[in-house]
Structure formats: C-alpha cells, structure tokens
Design a binder for these strands. Sequence first.
DNA 1: ACCTGAACACCGTTCAAGT
DNA 2: ACCTGAACACCGTTCAAGT
Lengths: 196, 196
Amino acid sequence: MPYHHGDLRRALLAAGLSLLEKRGPAQVSLREVARVAGVSHNAPYRHFDSREALLAALAADGFEALGVAMEQAAEGRTGFERLRALGIAYIAFARAQPAVYLLMFGPELVKDPFPALKAVAERSFEVLRQAIETIVPVETRRAAVIGAWALVHGLSHLIADHQFPPDFAEEDKLDALIEDVLAIYRQGLARGAEPH
Amino acid sequence: MPYHHGDLRRALLAAGLSLLEKRGPAQVSLREVARVAGVSHNAPYRHFDSREALLAALAADGFEALGVAMEQAAEGRTGFERLRALGIAYIAFARAQPAVYLLMFGPELVKDPFPALKAVAERSFEVLRQAIETIVPVETRRAAVIGAWALVHGLSHLIADHQFPPDFAEEDKLDALIEDVLAIYRQGLARGAEPH
DNA sequence: ACCTGAACACCGTTCAAGT
DNA sequence: ACCTGAACACCGTTCAAGT
C-alpha cells in the first residue's frame, strides 16, 4: 500500500524535479514521472490536472523558495548592504537550482493559466522594491528597481543557461565577478542619488 | 511541383517560426511543420536531422540577425553613445522577436550539440566587448562587459517573458524605462572609470 | 536528390471499471 | 478517494520503396 494520504503528490514532484534537472523540461512527462513513482500512467491525474500543472507546481515551489531566501537576506540589513545581500541571494538561488530557475522564467510554461504563480513571483519583487525605496530618490525609483531586477536576473539566467565564458567555471572567480558587477550598478545608483 | 531546389527548407523554417511565435517552442513539431508546408510528415528529414536541429536553425537565424543589428548599431558611433545604441538595439531585437529570443536563451534547446550556435552567439558578445574596451579601464573591464550583457539580457528576457508590471505595456513608457535603466549602469561605469 | 507510406515506441488525456 | 487498463489521437524517428 504505497503512497497513501498525499505522499504520491510529493513523490511525483520529486520525480518531476529529478527529471527536470537531469534531462530538461521537455523530458518531464507525466508517464515517466508515474513510472519513477511506481504507479500507473494515469495516477498523476489525481494530483495534477495536466502535465503543465505539474510543471507549474515545480515553478511555484521555486518562486516560494526564492521569496523565502530573499526575505532572509533582507532581514537585519539596511541600505546598500541589504541591496547587495538580496542580489547575492537571488543569484545564489539560480546557481543552486538552475533547471528550476530556467523553468520559472522560461516559455515552456505558459504562466497565464496559473495566477498563483504570478502572485508568488511578485513577493520577491516586493522585497527588492522595498530595499531600493530606502536608498534612491522617488524620481528614479522605478528604473532603479527594474534595473536591479534585470541585472540580477540577467546574471542568474546567463549562468543557469551556461552562457558565460569558461573562465568563470570556478565558483570563486564567479563569486568575484558577481560582486564586481553588482558594485558597478550600486555606484550608478549612488551617483544618481547625488545632487547634480 | 512545389518546393524544388531548396525552397522546402525555407518553407519549413517559416512554418516553424510561425508555430513558435503563436504557440510556443513545445508546440513546434516536425509533423505539424510538414503539414503546414504541404509535404509528408517525413519530408523535413531531408533538411533537418531532428526536431531539435530545426529549433537550432531558428535560434541560429536569431543570433545571426542579432549580430547584424548590433554591428549596425555600433557603426559610426563611439564611447558611451555606442554603448547606449548597442543596448537599445539588443533589447529592440528581443522586443521584436520575443519567441525567438526566448528560444535562443532557453533550455528547450540544448546548445552543446550545435557548436555553430555558440559561434554565432559570440559575435554579439564581441561587439559589446569592443565597445566597453574604449571607455573602461582594464581592471574593471571584464565585470563591465559581463554586467552590460547581463543588464540588457535581463531586460530583454523579462520583457519577452511578460514579467513586467502592466504599466509598461505601452511602448513609449517602456522606451523611457529602458533609457533610464541603461543610464544608471552607464553612470556606474563612468564613476568606476574616475580616479578615486 | 527528394518524397511517400507503413511501422514502432513513445506521449497526453479520457473513460469505464475496480477497491 | 485512489488506482488500473484500454483506448484515441498525437509525436519523433526509421525503413523500404517510389520518381
């Protein structure tokens, strides 16, 4: 009597995550996931309406984890130091879970039919918005938030998609590069905040 | 006698592009592409080794077009003005061809088996690298290039994936936002270039 | 060279049925 | 409630055959 009271759902998600990481989103099939979990090809429909719904659940878990990581990074820090910690935490998530990150921000999952996804995604944005609010004057605030998000997202996405030159394969070098890039943007914000 | 001497290849790519834009990369099937082009489900194999090879060809065309657009943007401009033009041109490409852009930088296409893809992609990077070279001191050059790429890529990707708040749906507002964001990064570069 | 039709092993999804 | 097996309409890919 395997998978009573809801364990199957977790087992299916675990199998889906494993497939996603090992073989990419296109290879996540409900039938394969069922096979890995040891149930019939049809059992997953008790927990997910469709293949897309399972992918959406994996992405939602990712947004949830990202939101938590960012809230923790923000806690107990202020000003530019908080902003830096948020950037590092965001990118760290993408480095730790590249496949999930690419799913969260990729076209293989059409997000419109899953409004819960959007809501969870907005939490991370909100944390970033508040951090920027305290260090940038009102006029440039919107561009500052969008720019900060775009910068960390761009770094994260390029890293997850292996688009960087091979000299950054070593973790330490990548760490240093990320710090330098964030510093450039921070200086741009600081200068914009100065009177001119 | 339709599709003699190589026209079929173009017709298949056109059908693939149309499917990609209308229904996403997962819906681009060789059989559907063949149907649209009016040939048997097997005819595409004369021109593409696999479904992935057709997607790779669409992505390669995208990188090619992006490279050309960036070279044109760089031409006749220097310094920060050239850098700005490159950023705008890069983002303009993503706005004009969001589906292709997402394919170029997404996981539904595993790029390793298509080395030609990587080569074409590096052309755009090279144009950016040269533009940065003329305005930033050697020490911070690497971070400046990666950061510039990450920033425009992040903006492009978030726009293509519809992740921005709805107030930027209007083209003009989005144009202004992009200019402001690029300006922040430019100021960061300028400050980094100053003696301190 | 380029195209076709049959075939195979996969999918997602639905349905009727079992406990 | 949760699971199963049969069924349907799709895929990608291969093969033997036609012009």
